[in-house]
Design a protein around this nucleic acid. Structure first.
Lengths: 110, 110
DNA sequence: CCAATTTATTCTATATTGTATAGCTAATGT
DNA sequence: ACATTAGCTATACAATATAGAATAAATTGG
């Protein structure tokens, strides 16, 4: 466990997107999922930079997929969260949770 | 609402500490609260830098308190969260919440 | 097979956050 | 006045956030 143990705000969002996209997570879908869920618009460059950083830290692994039978376009790079990545999300979650405990914030009850 | 609408990871933790400390939040207590709740150790400088930035953004306000009847020492600078700051926390919370919806993370059920 | 089109990734550059250490100030007590 | 205490400021640097332009790999039409 190195000095920077918590996920950055955006790293957190991105890794959650990967978890919900499960097997079909790659740049474009990650971006869509974030926008669809939160309404937040992010550049595709921001997504990849973050994915790369997370992979470097060992929180993600990626592999290129076979070309799909669609129109055209380069092959997708699929990402998935590693066990180490899961610990990081959980750690981050626990921290916020413990600080939130007992406070009355919107969406915090039930 | 400017381009950077979400609280950074540490900003988030700090502002939550202020909320739970209510009227008695100043550098030292904020640091203690974070350490007590999360076990995370941060330098006092990190705390102030973040408080200053949040205040600059209008998320916090501060004022110096009267000297206390204790041993000695400089007077405390008390911080409180503004309405704008509350929106920011809530916005940040909602984002994570919406991305977490339905996922099975530790501490996410109940 | 070549050019155009499509989808996706990589590069690069900059602003904002995270974080620590050292140094400075304002009270109090003697 | 001086030492001691508690707390705040200054500064510097590393890591993260973010966008835009450039590049690459497929597919299809002619």
């Amino acid at each position: 466990m190195s000095s920077r143990d918590y996920l950055g705000e955006f790293e957190h969002i991105v890794i959650l997107a990967l978890l919900r996209l499960a097997g079909r997570a790659y740049g474009v879908t990650v971006r869509q999922e974030i926008e669809a869920r939160t309404g937040r618009e992010v550049s595709i460059g921001a997504i990849y930079a973050t994915l790369d950083r997370l992979e470097t830290k060992g929180y993600l692994k990626s592999q290129f997929g076979e070309p799909t039978p669609e129109r055209g376009g380069r092959s997708k790079r699929f990402f998935h969260v590693t066990a180490k990545g899961m610990s990081a999300v959980n750690r981050t979650h626990r921290a916020v949770q413990s600080m939130t405990q007992g406070l009355d914030l919107i969406g915090s009850h039930s």
